[in-house]
Design a protein around this nucleic acid. Structure first.
Lengths: 215, 215
DNA sequence: ATGCTTGGATAGTGACACTCTCCAACGAGG
DNA sequence: CCTCGTTGGAGAGTGTCACTATCCAAGCAT
């Protein structure tokens, strides 16, 4: 198929596809003549994944390129590919070490992970995941705003996520080949985020109505 | 306190504070002379909330203004203020009704909410919450990408969020006055999102290591 | 052969969150 | 009293980002 057809089938304008090609988010098509290329189903699938990452996941173009590169990296095993891909997802600003609130955040985060029994980073010698910095920053911001949260407050959130992670991985294991599994894992990590957040808001609305709501 | 001191205490540049004043995210200070104003602790707290919304929550300036306006609206009760405030939070693009996948998303979402027993929108006659559209869009995108999710797949996520919503509201009820509660609810809704997402990613990494990881 | 269409390159757009530059009015030190 | 740095206010400018519009020469189709 040609550019125009790829565009029609994906709902993405030719101009945007050209932009993605230029940015390396899509591999170039098979050259047919000096001025024409042929695209296939792989391009279409990849294009849809790119759109999902960027539009739904809010992933910047540069990060999306890294994510895709990690997915395709033949030198890594399944775990490493997934880790590398999730690594490249946006994770907000790094903790500001000059801020005393960051110290609080770090202590709370460490205590929480300890309590949850997750063998994460600082003590484990492994490189610290970006998600860890994300957690520290968030706790620090809460404390700076006067909403201190203790490990006890946070633990239920950790337990809930632990459970969902098992569900997520079960979903991923439905897919046969490691390639499909890794692609699925990234797609599900990113695309379930809005599902999670919207369900939380709906659940809060429901619970708030139950507690305070007359109507 | 003057602009310079407000800036020093909050860590936000005077130029940015002036910008927020201009945009109506901060109320003007008490005028002392024709060219000087006095700010107080309320300004400082509000400024920190604004920063948290924008930097941590990724809320656009225009939405933040609406959120703050809803918080301060004297005509609404606690529920309505909270609803209005959360309403203004970013919620991604509205579902594309021309896309057949949207139909799938809508059916799945409705079935899920039915199954969860949440008396949400379409059938209830109430205006549909933006979070509902967010959910439909997310499910539609998953299905378009070839990752169909059934109500059974999603139910555990709903149950988990139901439980967390109770925890959230318990936290909110620690605060005495309705004003504080509403402010807390918005802050916690927004600021716990990165906590949730980072915990999920850490939990996934942990679970993935457990299942596939040799080290 | 002539009038689209294609792939490729370059430049432009619009939204956004600041950030810079001016300016006249203060206000504290000498 | 007179500087001289500071203040609040207003407008224009900056950098980033994700596109989008315009050209162009080389096909292909009729």
């Amino acid at each position: 198929m040609r550019l125009a057809e790829l565009s029609a089938r994906s709902g993405v304008s030719t101009a945007t596809i050209k932009y993605y090609l230029r940015e390396g988010l899509l591999p170039p098509g098979r050259r047919v003549t000096a001025t024409q290329s042929e695209y296939d189903g792989d391009h279409l699938r990849r294009l849809r994944l790119v759109r999902a990452l960027i539009q739904v996941g809010g992933v910047p173009v540069a990060s999306a390129r890294e994510v895709l590169a990690a997915l395709a990296d033949e030198d890594l095993d399944r775990n490493e590919r997934l880790g590398r891909a999730v690594w490249s997802l946006p994770h907000g600003p790094a903790p500001d070490e000059d801020d005393p609130a960051t110290e609080v955040g770090r202590r709370t985060a460490d205590a929480l992970l300890e309590q949850l029994g997750w063998g994460h980073g600082p003590a484990s010698g492994e490189p610290v995941a970006p998600a860890y910095g994300m957690l520290v920053t968030a706790i620090a911001t809460l404390s700076r705003l006067g909403y201190p949260c203790s490990t006890e407050d946070l633990e239920p959130y950790g337990r809930a996520m632990e459970q969902l992670a098992r569900t997520d991985l079960d979903l991923v294991e439905r897919y046969g080949t490691p390639e499909e599994q890794v692609a699925a894992a990234v797609a599900l990590t990113v695309l379930y985020e809005p599902v999670l957040l919207s369900l939380r808001r709906l659940a809060e609305a429901e619970e708030s109505r139950r507690r305070f709501g007359g109507k």
